[in-house]
């Protein structure tokens, strides 16, 4: 299985490498994650493992959650995600995965939930330029401008970028370089930013982006 773990974004800082160069890094706390369930082709029509990260108090879990984790003798988890596999799972239900499975991994994909920005206009949401600040423009400096043609097609083309809810959605950043792995503290340092607020839940896996010719 490609190394995959659930974790939390801790925050950003900067570190120096051996050559004295500065790297802006995001610190991620990964695992330990328990395998709560193994999905198999015979039973579930697909192969996957279900990972759980961070215990939560039993009283704040539903009875269904408690029953589900009781099968592997675990505590209810705050963050549960499935990882799809091509081959039958190597891990049994109840196994605990830790950050050392990322040993030797050079780049990762990080899946998180973006910070919510509420109902946003086109300038913030899609990077539109807006209209002019002057030259007779009135009350529509941040307006999107024209959204289509006229009598033909007499409708707005589907997929038109407009204003609306922005953020608070699943977001993936791919091929993020790993700067350092601290398996002892379950920390992974990756170069650059990661979606979501500090403390937000993330899923990290070895990148599925094909290596470029240079690498």
């Amino acid at each position: 299985m490609t190394p995959t773990l659930l974790g939390q974004k801790i925050g950003m800082t900067q570190v120096f490498d051996d050559e004295g160069n500065v790297h802006p890094v995001t610190v991620l706390k990964l695992g330990p994650c328990q395998v709560l369930q193994v999905r198999t082709a015979e039973k579930d029509k697909y192969e996957a493992v279900q990972l759980g990260y961070l215990d939560k108090p039993r009283k704040s879990a539903t009875k269904a959650e408690r029953g589900h984790v009781a099968k592997v003798g675990a505590e209810p988890k705050r963050f549960v995600r499935e990882v799809r596999l091509d081959a039958p799972a190597e891990h049994e239900a109840g196994a605990v995965l830790t950050a050392d499975i990322f040993d030797g991994v050079k780049a990762v994909d990080i899946i998180g939930t973006m910070k919510g920005r509420g109902y946003s206009g086109t300038m913030k949401r899609h990077g539109f330029g807006g209209l002019e600040a002057t030259h007779g423009v009135q009350r529509s400096h941040r307006a999107p401008g024209s959204i289509g043609c006229s009598a033909y097609p007499a409708r707005v083309i589907k997929g038109r970028k407009m204003n609306g809810q922005y953020g608070n959605t699943r977001s993936t950043v791919r091929n993020v370089k790993v700067v350092r792995l601290d398996a002892e503290q379950s920390l992974l340092l990756v170069r650059g930013g990661v979606p979501g607020p500090n403390g937000g839940m993330v899923m990290v896996r070895e990148t599925n982006r094909k290596k470029s010719k240079k690498a």
Partner: peptide
């Protein structure tokens, strides 16, 4: 500062 961030920085 967040304790884990302080730990990360300590090596630098």
């Amino acid at each position: 500062i967040q304790p884990l961030l302080a730990h990360v920085q300590s090596s630098s």
